[in-house]
């Protein structure tokens, strides 16, 4: 299960990462090795086995619909990269 350089770039783009050209080969090898390792899974029989998403198999607890949050915008925005008039700023997004 070897990945080619384009696949490495495509996966990286999916998760908004960029792999520099001089690192592509290393990622390609590493990722391919990992995939080879996990491919052990594909060889075993899993029909009729219910997937286990979480080790504790209980129901979701429900929260009362009551306002508990208070406005802490100033505190939260004090650690933000860029804000203006209470908004988080990013380079203009066009639709």
């Amino acid at each position: 299960m070897a990945l080619d350089p384009k696949q490495v770039h495509d996966i990286a783009e999916l998760v908004r990462l960029q792999i520099e050209d001089d690192q592509v080969q290393e990622y390609q090898e590493n990722l391919s090795n990992i995939l080879e390792m996990v491919n052990q899974l594909t060889s075993f029989e899993t029909d009729n086995i219910e997937p286990l998403a979480n080790p504790i198999e209980i129901a979701q607890r429900l929260r009362a619909d009551e306002v508990t949050a208070v406005n802490k915008r100033d505190l939260f925005q004090s650690i933000a990269p860029q804000t203006e008039q209470g908004y988080y700023l990013v380079p203009r997004v066009v639709e």
Binding site: I11, V15, L17, N30, L31, V38
Partner: peptide
């Protein structure tokens, strides 16, 4: 990065 990419791939 490696783990994020493997996870995204899977």
């Amino acid at each position: 990065k490696r783990r994020i990419m493997i996870g995204a791939y899977a």
